[in-house]
């Protein structure tokens, strides 16, 4: 059945206004978003031109963007990205698996949960970058040094999320599985795993960002191959344009990793309420 047509003047005005609002909501984000980016670039240009910082240290946006695209033709550029991503991936996988295993182990026992509380609360806030000098001495500018930093930082994030997840198992559901005489494996598969998964994925998503930051920091300071090291080198060579272009690259990489992590989360948790609710009915 069709909705009755608006009859009074006020109703017509209301409908027209709503349509206008719709159109604005459609184009607004695009137009204003582009305007925001342009405003940023113009501010940068003006600041580089008239600001107190010399041209030598703050190049114009056009130069940086040009260099950013020119980099795509360089093998060394792709090698640096490859090195950063490889360390990132290895570190993320190691810390996710370790965090999950240890988290499930500790989380399934009340005794272990209480006994490990102090140790975890002390080890967790140690910023893993504090280990950079030790890693640098012990391993030198090697992948292992970078991995140590990444894994220490991300392990606790995944671990804590996993602990939350295990603790979140519904008590009534748990007792139901007991009544149904489910085996340990069935309970793990049908009760604990689905409860745990969203928390674990949150941990992995957070870790994906943290791993990139830690990896690049390690490269910057220890000098393991990767984007961070290229930036440090560009700074030493007095090549600010190259440096800024690499930083833009790091930002782009950050966005890609962010999007990929969110997409992975959505894919794995397609059945979960938090994801289903996003789909318009």
């Amino acid at each position: 059945m069709l909705a009755p047509l608006p009859v009074t003047g006020t109703q017509v005005i209301r409908v027209v206004k709503a349509m206008r609002r719709d159109r604005r909501a459609q184009w607004g984000p695009v137009v204003l978003g582009v305007a925001g980016v342009v405003a940023f670039l113009v501010t940068w240009q003006l600041y580089a031109e008239f600001g107190p910082v010399s041209d030598e240290f703050l190049p114009y946006p056009a130069q940086v963007i040009g260099q950013f695209f020119a980099n795509f033709a360089l093998t060394s550029f792709w090698a640096a990205i490859g090195a950063t991503l490889w360390a990132w991936l290895l570190g993320l996988v190691i810390s996710s698996v370790a965090g999950l295993v240890v988290g499930v182990l500790i989380g399934s026992s009340r005794f272990l949960r209480r006994a490990t509380f102090t140790v975890l609360e002390f080890l967790r806030p140690i910023p893993s970058v504090a280990l950079i000098p030790i890693a640098a001495l012990a391993f030198g500018p090697q992948l292992e040094a970078e991995l140590l930093i990444i894994v220490y930082g991300c392990f606790f994030v995944v671990l804590i999320q996993t602990l939350y997840g295990v603790a979140d198992v519904d008590k009534i559901a748990y007792e139901t599985t007991l009544t149904m005489r489910m085996t340990w494996l069935q309970r793990a598969r049908h009760l604990v795993f689905p409860t745990l998964l969203p928390y674990f994925m949150t941990g992995v998503r957070l870790s994906a960002t943290i791993a990139l930051i830690l990896g690049i920091s390690a490269e910057l300071i220890i000098g393991t191959d990767g984007l961070g090291q290229s930036v440090a080198q560009a700074q030493l060579n007095g090549a600010p344009v190259a440096m800024y272009a690499l930083i833009v690259t790091a930002g782009a990489l950050g966005i890609v990793i962010n999007l990929a992590a969110r997409a992975a989360e959505r894919k794995v948790l397609f059945w979960h309420e938090s994801i289903r609710a996003e789909v318009p009915a």
Binding site: V31, S217, G251, I255
Partner: peptide
């Protein structure tokens, strides 16, 4: 809403830059 639309893409980008990599830049600037 307009402020959100205006700033969102730029914020998304700036936020994605790993902050430690800004140290060499700030050193220069």
């Amino acid at each position: 809403r307009a402020a959100r639309w205006f700033s969102e893409p730029m914020l998304e980008f700036l936020r994605a830059i790993p902050s430690t990599i800004m140290i060499p830049v700030l050193l220069l600037v």
